[in-house]
Design a protein around this nucleic acid. Structure first.
Lengths: 236, 236
DNA sequence: GATATGACGATTTTTCAAAATTCGTCAACT
DNA sequence: AGTTGACGAATTTTGAAAAATCGTCATATC
């Protein structure tokens, strides 16, 4: 009986411990940067033995990789939740605004996009190509949905819009922190209004926000699941 | 008489020598990067003594600073010439296209905007604040001109348009080199079409291209002169 | 018997002083 | 006057020893 409850609870506890380790690693990473955080630090701060950390990840690089993977996951999940809560936010400029804030609010993600060497260490040289491709594919799918509903300017190909949107978005993320006003919400609004005029069409009055949002949420859900699986992370 | 002709030609020859030194320094810089280029290299390649280089610039840093200053100058001059040649190119999206190409065509300038550490060395930490301010002021003046002619969207402040334009522009420069198509002309067009929709109004049929272009050329001329003076560079 | 641990050998990073390179100057040269 | 390269000062590179960190695994715990 005690054995059965333990068998039941055990995976749950394992996941909790993994999460706690990631919490600690993320905390130390933001505070001291990649190079100054050791596995002993992480284990010590988490109140467990170093060997235990290695029960979850094979190497230091994989542990820190998982930290970033979880941040990316959470940002995508922010966007999904925002879209679930307000289907009217499925237009590209709202998508951009929400995504921008989801990234800028997370120091590790800003660092990732800014290529912060202090934060990233040797992870710089090995960007997760597979994940990047999944995210690019998701964006492409999303833009396809928007195009079907005539919500994008039609004098540019989908790939071109994707490239231009991506460049603009990253430009704003990079500018954040080196601009006159660095209030994230103001910058996010400015990005939204830029993206809206640059890439969108006027939405028709009969636009089925619900189904469009649902389809986008589905795309995001697939992306998140794929990312989670690839990173070996549990729900959350 | 020979003394008088010599006195006349001498500043000319000095300038030519300075230009040759900058040529050599730029060449070595692009090929080997900041850290691997010594003053002896530059002098040797220029066929003069090292002491002579120091007759033109007080330190190594100032020499390499002048190399970048001249590149910036040349890019601005490209834009000015393009505008002089075709006054119809004074709209923001054409301005963006020409400036983009002027930068991307110059490896040192791309490196500057990309913050290339290999290329920049310790110049990274000391961006020329004064020059950056002059350039920002020029952009602001130019946007003011465009606004007077109702050529910019009017639901955004000038500063906001400036910030957003800058972020978009730099996003495209950064994306160049890490995107699917890296044909500079295609990217420049994409930027132009993005900027046009994002920030411009339809130009009125009676727009005085001539005077607007002339005013912009004047702004650029002032900027170039100020930059040149600040860098202690001759014409060219 | 499954899980957790920290001591341990292997590997990597840091240290630090000697050697080498490079900077910037200036007395000598044209 | 204008130019130069030899020179002392300052910086960077080198390399070997010391220190720190990684990842493993025999042992300990329940």
């Amino acid at each position: 009986m005690s054995a059965s409850t333990e068998r039941l609870r055990e995976p749950q506890q394992r996941a909790e411990r993994a999460a706690r380790i990631l919490d600690v690693a993320a905390e130390l990473l933001t505070r001291h940067g990649y190079r100054r955080v050791t596995m002993d630090d992480v284990a010590g701060e988490a109140g467990i033995g170093k060997g235990t950390v290695y029960l979850h990840w094979k190497t230091r690089e994989q542990l820190f990789g998982a930290v970033f993977a979880r941040e990316v996951l959470r940002a995508a999940d922010d966007v999904r939740q925002a879209l679930q809560q307000d289907p009217r936010a499925c237009l590209l400029h709202d998508f951009a605004r929400v995504y921008f804030l989801a990234i800028v609010d997370r120091p590790l993600l800003s660092g990732l996009l800014l290529g912060d060497l202090h934060l990233l260490g040797k992870l710089t040289s090995s960007p997760d190509t597979a994940r990047d491709e999944r995210h690019a594919a998701m964006l492409h799918g999303y833009l396809g949905l928007l195009a079907e509903h005539r919500l994008l300017r039609d004098d540019l190909g989908l790939d071109e819009i994707g490239d231009a949107y991506q460049a603009t978005f990253e430009g704003f993320v990079r500018a954040q922190g080196s601009s006159s006003t660095d209030d994230p919400k103001r910058r996010a609004d400015l990005l939204a209004r830029t993206v809206q005029r640059a890439f969108e069409n006027e939405p028709p009055p009969d636009l089925p926000f619900q189904s469009l949002a649902a389809a986008t949420v589905a795309l995001l859900g697939d992306l998140i699941d794929a990312d989670r699986t690839a990173a070996g992370l549990p729900e959350n």
